[in-house]
Design a protein around this nucleic acid. Structure first.
Lengths: 139, 139
DNA sequence: CCATTTTACTCAGCGAGCTGAACAATACTG
DNA sequence: CAGTATTGTTCAGCTCGCTGAGTAAAATGG
């Protein structure tokens, strides 16, 4: 049967699992006015401002995609963008007060709430296998 | 450091790994005029025609998304769509000759080529953990 | 049998990924 | 120092997810 997950290639299982898990978490995020992509970006500037390119690299995303994500964050006033005076090609992206608050709240939620990925029999092994995968597929 | 994958929540690792792996495989597919979404859909009708809703359910995707995917496949002549005479609400989606050929070739590629997910230390465990995840997150 | 509900699909619109191409600012180099 | 290359960002345009709303056909039920 083609419905049988056993017949699916591993890559397809990976994509589908990611989509289903992300959706569950995303519905919570949206209730707080944030998206998954936005949260990931906030994560990378929680400790201090960075250029868009740096954020993009850290998130494993193209510059173009990050450009738009940061634009959304700016419109929501979670982030400010200023031209870096030291290098006027660079945008200095800095988290705002309300951005930091929301970020901390979401991190707390992420930590406290039962993670959708925790339902699995061996979450630790899953984690380390995924880390292997991301490491091996560098951009 | 926020770049350190160890600090990422499992869900984020899952999404990122899926994206990176899918991209690697997708570049091969596109060279043959097919997308990942298209291939998954073809998989479900390789054994015989089905309605769009059935295909959508099998692929864990909404009807709307599948509607568009099938439209693309039809435009590429990999699939034909006809109104089901027994129930005129249903679209009977059938794989074409060239669709079948391309599908078989891609399956062969998928089987023969070193899968991007195979680089991991224990691909079998990864597979079974992913199957657990997809099963637990039903729509 | 007609009215209502359910089913199957489409349309519109959005976020998030991607590529390719353009642009301005900086850095290199002869 | 002028000319070229590199860097950082944006614009345009595509696919693929999603939701919400609309339509036509079929099923239900009073």
């Amino acid at each position: 049967m083609t419905d049988d997950l056993e017949s699916w290639p591993t890559g397809r299982l990976l994509s589908t699992a990611a989509r289903l898990v992300e959706q569950a978490w995303e519905s919570t995020l949206r209730a707080h006015g944030l998206t998954h992509a936005g949260l990931v970006a906030l994560h990378t500037i929680a400790d201090g401002p960075r250029s868009q390119r740096e954020i993009a690299r850290a998130c494993r995303v193209t510059d173009q995609t990050m450009s738009r994500t940061v634009e959304h964050l700016e419109r929501s006033a979670l982030v400010t963008r200023t031209v870096d005076p030291a290098d006027e090609r660079r945008m200095r992206v800095q988290i705002t007060e309300s951005g930091n608050e929301l970020y901390r709240a979401m991190i707390e939620l992420e930590r406290t709430d039962a993670q959708p990925t925790a339902v699995v029999s061996d979450p630790g092994t899953l984690r380390s296998l995924l880390i292997e995968l991301v490491r091996s597929a560098q951009r």
